[in-house]
Design a protein around this nucleic acid. Structure first.
Length: 689
DNA sequence: TAGGGTTTT
């Protein structure tokens, strides 16, 4: 039973528009067994009494166990059976956090099925926009990490919970670290609360050391995965890991018994390159009787949904399926029947540079923990093999764990959220990993420039308090709040909602369809930039009745568009709560662009005479991203506001708006009136002389 | 001329 990850059916379910109907769609290889018998067969079952005993004796329990051992579905039930939800005066809830929405839904569905109750009654889930719980009745609740943090706004000590289980903690998302830090604070005040930290990797000591200063902490290792995986290393380093992975797949196909292959590469381009070559190989061996057929499929996040779903198809035994994937296959999706894993040893990670306030997407060696996770993808249905395209010596040199996200991110939103919870001194707040000083400073500077915090770094009233309540980056919140002044809250809402969705444009990489997609995009484009273009896209979708056919015809991501509608509705109710008037500028783009400046004034760039843009502050060189509608404009605007910057082959800014330079001084005098940093530096030099 | 992957009362 693929307990805490996606199975074929659950993935399909998530991608369909139908409501989640029944529990029986979850794949389960022990389906024919009675539920009770199935539960007993899970590896975790042997540890049931031990877990309950340790939790009686300790306030924190760190459990390490392979993905799929049943910990996510079984432990909450053990706790329920042992009456952890029954208090003297109240009923308690057992809360389980997940990094991903689908996981929360699937786990709740499965456990409701095992407990023979309706989803949303005794067992429920809560994710943004979708709270499937019954207050007073739901005793086991699966939720995303963000939901738990937000619950602390109204219930700082989480008093309705008797046990909180932080599942998949090894992923160390920014939210995981915030949750762990907050739980540590709560543990000091609630000696009866129990916390379970569950991790698939062996970072148990880090977690124990983190909690042991405030609570009695135990570690439990749940032995073994269901099937063994043999690890193979290359004897000498490979020069080109894409080529090496292709060769390895061919080797496997020609020499190894049947079983599907999963290849890990770092990005879309690499995946497509490998798929092309393997596809040609597969075509070449079609007529050969001595070899099985081979079917090659790509898998990455921006691949259109219908093509993603193909990786879950089952093929006849005479065909070997080869999936070439990015890191999406390491944790986010589980493909059944993988027997061979090819691991290139690299991953693309985002690192925030606080000096330039930009993100870089960098290909870096994976961590040992990540290598273990990748290898584990081979042993889920029977014993498998993992081929590592690096030497054993190099494996030993790898970082033990991947750098937690909180150490490589822009922290402004997280800081604001903690401040809203009353945690004012972020420097003193205890995170499982230290925050880089410069990241903190930059985040505080931005919040100050936005007017969300004052000279003492306290939240301002009302602006800071309001900004903190938006589930958005503070710059978006600021833009929405100030939209009232410009009489364009309707437009600000639409733009914000559209920018929360990734991959709105469908861009096939080649063929006739790629030209059609480009033309479709061009129809919406306006010279004022991407944000105003999104406005056209959204309005078109609404006018067309929010139908899939319209989205498909215009090469737009239908699910993404629906999500934008959902986000927008949610934001509308927030604006109403703050009594911000819903108003449209009725086609006048100037107030809309000014409104964008009021939130994103810090992200301004001008066209330098060298032909390359430079940031107003810092004089940092930036290029227009090829995905921006302004990329192909014959006359690029003199001044732009960008929403994102990403350093890949160059430093690219994307999601642009053409603005007037006067607006910067008009709307952000505190930020620009003293001149740019370069000007300040120049003045300093002059003064010295 | 280019896109690791998540998520938010």
């Amino acid at each position: 039973m693929a307990a805490n990850s996606l199975t074929e059916d659950s993935w399909k379910e998530d991608r369909s528009d139908a409501a989640f109907e029944s529990a029986s769609i979850i794949y389960n290889r022990n389906k024919s067994l009675e539920i009770a018998a199935q539960r007993v067969r899970l590896p975790i079952y042997e540890f049931r009494d031990h877990i309950l005993y340790l939790l009686e004796q300790n306030q924190v329990l760190v459990i390490q166990g392979q993905t799929g051992c049943g910990k996510s579905t079984q432990i909450p039930q053990y706790l329920y059976e042992a009456n952890w939800t029954r208090g003297d005066e109240q009923t308690f809830v057992i809360g389980v956090t997940q990094p991903r929405r689908v996981a929360a839904i699937n786990l709740a569905t499965r456990v409701a099925f095992e407990m023979k109750c309706k989803l949303g009654e005794e067992v429920g889930y809560s994710i943004r926009f979708d709270d499937c719980c019954t207050a007073g009745r739901t005793v086991i609740k699966y939720m995303t990490e963000g939901i738990l943090v937000n619950e602390m706004m109204s219930d700082p000590l989480l008093k309705k919970y008797s046990v909180i289980m932080v599942d998949e903690s090894h992923e160390r998302t920014i939210h995981t670290d915030v949750v762990l830090g907050l739980l540590k604070k709560i543990l000091r005040k609630r000696s009866e609360l129990r916390v379970i930290i569950s991790s698939a990797t062996v970072e148990t000591e880090i977690m124990r050391d983190f909690f042991s200063s405030v609570a009695k902490t135990a570690i439990l290792s749940v032995e073994g995965r269901a099937y063994s995986v043999d690890i193979y290393y290359v004897s000498s380093p490979v020069a080109d890991y894409v080529k090496a992975s292709i060769d390895t797949v061919i080797q496997i196909h020609e020499n190894q018994p049947s079983g599907d292959v999963l290849v890990f590469l770092t990005g879309q381009e690499e995946v497509e390159r490998a798929v092309d070559i393997l596809f040609n190989y597969a075509r070449g061996i079609k007529e050969r009787n001595d070899l099985k057929k081979m079917f090659v499929l790509p898998m990455y996040a921006s691949l259109p949904t219908n093509e993603q779903l193909k990786v879950f198809d089952s093929f006849p035994r005479s065909v070997r399926k080869v999936v070439v994937a990015t890191n999406i296959a390491e944790a986010s999706i589980t493909i059944d029947g993988i027997v061979y894993v090819v691991d290139c040893g690299f991953v693309k990670l985002k690192f925030y540079n606080p000096k330039t306030c930009t993100d870089s997407l960098v290909i870096v060696p994976i961590s040992q923990a990540s290598a273990e996770q990748r290898a584990g993808r081979a042993g889920r249905t029977r014993s498998g093999k993992a081929y590592r395209l690096y030497t054993e010596e190099d494996f030993e040199k790898l970082q033990t764990f991947t750098t937690p996200e909180i150490q490589r991110s822009n922290l402004s939103m997280m800081i604001l959220q903690l401040k809203a919870l009353g945690i004012n001194n972020i420097l003193k707040f205890d995170f499982p990993s230290k925050l880089p000083d410069q990241n903190l400073v930059t985040a505080l500077e931005l919040l100050y420039a936005l007017g969300a915090i004052d000279d003492n770094a306290n939240l301002t009233d009302p602006l800071g308090l309001q900004v903190a309540e938006f589930p958005l980056d503070p710059q978006f919140a600021k833009m929405l709040i100030s939209s009232q002044e410009f009489g364009c809250s309707e437009e600000a809402l639409t733009i914000t909602a559209m920018l929360q969705v990734q991959n709105i444009w469908q861009q096939p990489s080649k063929g006739q369809r790629s030209i059609q997609a480009r033309n479709a995009k061009h129809k919406f484009s306006v010279e004022e930039g991407d944000l105003l273009t999104y406005l056209n896209v959204y309005n078109g979708f609404i006018e067309a009745g929010k139908v899939r056919s319209w989205a498909d015809r215009n090469y737009l991501n239908y699910k993404g568009m629906l999500r934008a509608v959902e986000v927008r509705n949610r934001l509308v109710s927030l604006l109403k709560r703050f009594k911000i008037k819903l108003e449209s500028s009725k086609g006048d783009d100037v107030p809309v662009r000014k409104c964008i400046v009021s939130g994103f004034f810090a992200n301004a760039a001008y066209l330098h005479h060298s032909g390359v843009y430079r940031t107003v502050r810092g004089g940092h060189e930036l290029h227009i991203h090829p995905q921006s509608v302004l990329f192909t404009r014959p006359r690029p605007p003199q001044w732009v506001i960008f929403i994102t910057v990403l350093h890949t082959t160059k430093e690219f800014m994307n999601d642009l708006t053409a603005v007037n330079s006067d607006w910067l001084h008009e709307l952000a005098p505190h930020y620009y009136d003293y001149g740019t940093e370069r000007e300040i530096e120049e003045r300093k030099l002059l003064n010295k002389e």
